[in-house]
């Protein structure tokens, strides 16, 4: 352990702003990337499911005429 207290750790030897800015932006960007990536598959599946439902409706309408 390099630091003796939490305040010392957060201060980063005087470079707190730069170090935490770099780490913050990195993990922020990664979080956004991961969230959009994880949502992608279910979005695609939902899109396909909706399309199938639409086709189903079209088929029924044509059948009833």
């Amino acid at each position: 352990m390099q630091y003796h207290s939490l305040a010392e750790f957060l201060n980063m030897g005087g470079y707190a702003f730069f170090v935490w800015l770099a780490y913050g932006v990195t993990f922020g960007c990664l979080a956004v990337l991961i969230i959009t990536t994880l949502g992608q598959e279910s979005r695609v599946l939902k899109h396909i499911a909706n399309k199938m439902k639409r086709e189903e409706r079209l088929k029924q309408n044509r059948g009833s005429k």
Partner: peptide
């Protein structure tokens, strides 16, 4: 891998196995 999977699904949306998956998960 995650994006690749989504890409596979989006490009193969007419295949029966994708449609089954969509019915199971999407609705």
């Amino acid at each position: 891998l995650v994006r690749f999977k989504a890409e596979i699904l989006a490009r193969n949306s007419m295949r029966p196995w994708v449609r089954e998956l969509a019915q199971a998960k999407g609705v």
